[in-house]
Simulated scan of single mutants.
Amino acid sequence: MSPPILLLKTKSSPNDGYDDFFSANNYTPTFVPVLEHRFHTSNLADVRELFAAGAFGQKTNDAGPTSTNVQLPTAGTSKQYGGMIFTSQRAVEGFAQMIEEKGLPATPSIPLYTVGPATARTLSSLRDKYLPTSTIHGADTGTGENLAHMMLDHYNDLQKMATSDLNGAPKSKPGLLFLVGEQRRDIIPKTLMDPTLPEDKRINVDEIVVYETGEMDSFEKDFAECVQGCAGEEVTWVVVFSPSGCEAMLRVLKLGPFASDGSSASSKGSRRIFVATIGPTTRDHLRNKFGFEPHVCAEKPSPEGVGEGIKRFMKSR
């Protein structure tokens, strides 16, 4: 029988790379949502209006640097973008939901930047259907910082061929539109707009919040029920994707500070429950806050990275 693997995340739509990968590798994946995501429909409507207003393309005049408060462009202004950035599957899903409900009024050919193969796969499905001539970059960068440095080279190279008008006069470089969640790091805008960079190297970035996130009240109960449902299994894996929900997860499994005289849910009889993290941020959170060392930390934040870590661990036993 295929061993269960509990994935502490919301299943991505329209497809989920973790579901595909672990189903194909003789596991039975179950998704246990930790976070509740609420889309900002008014801001997503603003994104649609940017497409309708022809905001993606070369700037026609220079109105100075952009800000992080996106305003819809008016005729003759320079509020235009040469591409988009997605570092979250939720941002892609919010964008997709807006398109599915309202349609996309324009289909420009633009670079779409993303970080991590899972988000790239979700974005690819959307691109193929609605932005077929656009290109996706950054799937293997792994972190926002790596993506930002890649964009400094890649996007600037793309713009070199489009920075002069027919008379040879230089045109102002369009910025990038970054669809983000309410909670996010600012490493990408800071890196791209670093004032120490040469002016012609800097890339203006506008962020627009398209979703907000909070831990689900029902997570601990839902997770406990899933663990109970795996009671007859010899081996069960739990994959943790963010610091959110770690305390509840450890409490249910009676691990770390919640362990008591060997009676943890992970070590009853011949049964074993093992914990893997998507990367070092979540691993360090478990270490530093709870004194718990996960069994696996993926070298790459992807289904393949998690799977390879699990495979090595099981071989070592």
Rank of each mutant, 00 (worst) to 15 (best):
residue 293 E to N: 11
residue 18 Y to G: 00
residue 108 P to F: 04
residue 123 L to V: 03
residue 45 A to R: 13
residue 59 K to M: 10
residue 223 F to M: 09
residue 131 L to A: 05
residue 155 Y to H: 05
residue 282 T to D: 06
residue 24 A to L: 13
residue 296 V to E: 00
residue 13 S to H: 14
residue 11 K to E: 15
residue 116 G to K: 01
residue 155 Y to S: 02
residue 140 D to M: 08
residue 156 N to K: 02
residue 165 D to N: 14
residue 200 D to E: 09
residue 26 N to G: 09
residue 9 K to F: 04
residue 296 V to M: 09
residue 67 S to G: 14
residue 53 A to V: 07
residue 1 M to F: 11
residue 145 E to T: 12
residue 114 T to E: 05
residue 129 K to D: 03
residue 97 Q to R: 14
residue 8 L to Y: 02
residue 60 T to I: 15
residue 189 P to C: 00
residue 253 L to T: 06
residue 96 A to T: 13
residue 93 E to Q: 13
residue 196 T to W: 09
residue 69 N to C: 13
residue 212 E to F: 00
residue 65 P to H: 14
residue 49 E to Y: 11
residue 81 Y to I: 07
residue 171 K to E: 02
residue 81 Y to T: 05
residue 104 L to A: 04
residue 285 H to A: 09
residue 163 T to N: 12
residue 191 T to A: 08
residue 86 F to L: 00
residue 66 T to H: 10
residue 3 P to A: 13
residue 112 L to W: 08
residue 220 E to C: 06
residue 21 F to V: 02
residue 184 R to E: 01
residue 215 E to S: 11
residue 316 S to G: 04
residue 266 S to P: 05
residue 102 K to L: 02
residue 167 N to W: 10
residue 173 K to W: 00
residue 315 K to W: 04
residue 308 E to F: 10
residue 130 Y to T: 00
residue 94 G to F: 08
residue 62 D to R: 12
residue 149 H to L: 12
residue 206 D to F: 02
residue 297 C to L: 05
residue 91 A to I: 02
residue 217 D to T: 13
residue 132 P to C: 00
residue 187 I to R: 02
residue 270 S to D: 15
residue 23 S to Y: 01
residue 159 Q to H: 08
residue 306 V to E: 00
residue 221 K to E: 15
residue 269 G to C: 05
residue 95 F to D: 01
residue 110 I to Y: 01
residue 155 Y to C: 01
residue 73 P to N: 09
residue 299 E to H: 12
residue 24 A to V: 07
residue 305 G to D: 07
residue 213 T to F: 05
residue 27 Y to H: 14
residue 170 P to C: 02
residue 217 D to C: 07
residue 192 L to G: 03
residue 44 L to K: 06
residue 175 G to Y: 08
residue 4 P to N: 12
residue 121 R to H: 14
residue 235 V to I: 15
residue 77 T to K: 07
residue 60 T to P: 03
residue 203 I to Y: 02
residue 211 Y to K: 04
residue 69 N to F: 15
residue 52 A to M: 08
residue 16 D to S: 05
residue 87 T to L: 09
residue 62 D to K: 12
residue 96 A to F: 08
residue 103 G to P: 01
